[in-house]
Computed example of a mutant assay.
Amino acid sequence: MSMSIWAPGRVNLIGEHTDYSGGLVLPIAIDRGIRLEVDRGPQIALVSNGDSIELAADGSGDAHGWGRYAAAVGRELALLGRPAVGIAGTLDSDVPQGAGLGSSGALEVVVALALCAAAEFEVDPLELALACQRAERRAVGVPSGILDQAASLLGREGHALLLDCGSLEYRWVELPEELAIVVIDSGERHSHEGSGYADRKRELESGHPHRVRHVRTENERVRALVGALERGDLEALGPIFAASHASLRDDYEVSTPRLDRVVDAALAAGAIGARMTGGGFGGSIVALAAREDARGVLQRTLEQAGVQGWIVRPAAGATRRRTDPSRNPA
């Protein structure tokens, strides 16, 4: 079994810090992600940028750094009944870590798909997303939601994924052709385990009025944005993005001055709308732009704020492709 497996990162258009409370999210899978070239092996042996891990085929063993995610995925799949079949492969990524683009979720998904393929153990995509979500919690102890893993597995080209994280019902929302999505990395790095992410969840569950208000109004904004996209009402998108960012800054308190500056720079550069995306405390912003002006918006923004950026395409979800040499007919 030789396979090439691809798992995309994600950008959340709206619905921030709502997934772990069973709310609504609207992410896209993007055309940046993690590729794993892999074969079966006696254990889990993976290499990434010269750093290697070796674990038992069921994920047990000592792991550190990014290896914690691979180990946790192996353990969660073992609990689902996956036979202990190992993999050996090389990871290659063009998703920057800590930029709020779902790099850990993509890593979990690509490893999970490889382990399932090696053991000929098939899992429904949503069940696999849930297993990867549990793996992230196991790996780093952060009470994250299902957004990243679901987006990576269920993405559809040209569409956003409207997911109810409570019922797990979902549908795709077609994005207007004339709309481009621009992502700008603030350069401010974060990790969920080292940020206030878990604190915000605890505050929400305890009934903190500002945290509760953010989640309630953010769910309303998800519905409003979906309605505007489906009507083709591009003028309505900017105010919805602005309200979302203000709520994340003031009510949920997960934005930073640097993220705020990048949002302001994108708007000054001509973006239709801009807001922080991801867990906050650093990372990236997402901006909407007219397709013909997207490169200009990106360039003008980076002249004022941010360290790098991309025009991203709403992409298909994770894929597996056999790369075994073709056999000559007998």
Rank of each mutant, 00 (worst) to 15 (best):
S21N: 14
G22I: 09
G23M: 11
A29H: 09
D31G: 08
D31W: 02
I34K: 06
I34Q: 07
R35Q: 12
R35T: 15
L36P: 07
E37H: 04
D39A: 10
V47L: 11
S48P: 00
E54W: 00
L55H: 07
L55S: 00
A56M: 10
G61N: 00
D62M: 03
D62R: 14
A63Y: 04
Y69D: 08
G81K: 02
R82I: 06
I87M: 11
T90D: 07
T90I: 12
G98I: 12
G98S: 08
V110T: 05
V111R: 01
A112R: 06
C116V: 04
A117H: 12
A119W: 05
F121S: 12
E122F: 02
V123L: 14
A129I: 07
L130Y: 04
C132G: 05
E136D: 04
E136Q: 09
R137D: 02
G141Q: 03
G141C: 03
S144V: 12
S144T: 14
S144Y: 00
S144Q: 00
I146N: 07
I146C: 01
S152A: 15
L154V: 01
G158H: 07
G158F: 11
G158R: 04
H159D: 14
H159A: 13
H159I: 03
V173I: 15
E174Y: 00
E177K: 10
I181T: 09
S186T: 15
E188D: 11
G194K: 13
S195E: 10
G196Y: 03
K201V: 15
S206T: 10
G207K: 04
G207F: 03
R213H: 12
H214I: 10
T217A: 14
E218H: 03
N219V: 11
N219L: 05
R221A: 09
R221D: 01
V226F: 04
V226R: 10
R231E: 15
R231L: 12
F241I: 02
H245L: 13
L248A: 13
L248S: 13
R249F: 08
Y252D: 07
E253I: 12
V254Q: 14
V254L: 10
T256F: 13
R258F: 02
V263Q: 09
V263A: 08
D264C: 04
G273N: 11
R275G: 01
M276N: 10
G280L: 09
G283S: 10
S284L: 12
S284N: 08
V286K: 11
V286H: 10
R291M: 08
D293V: 01
R300E: 15
L302W: 04
A305E: 10
Q308I: 00
V312R: 06
P314V: 06
P314M: 01
A315H: 05
T319W: 05
T323Q: 04
P325R: 11
N328Q: 13
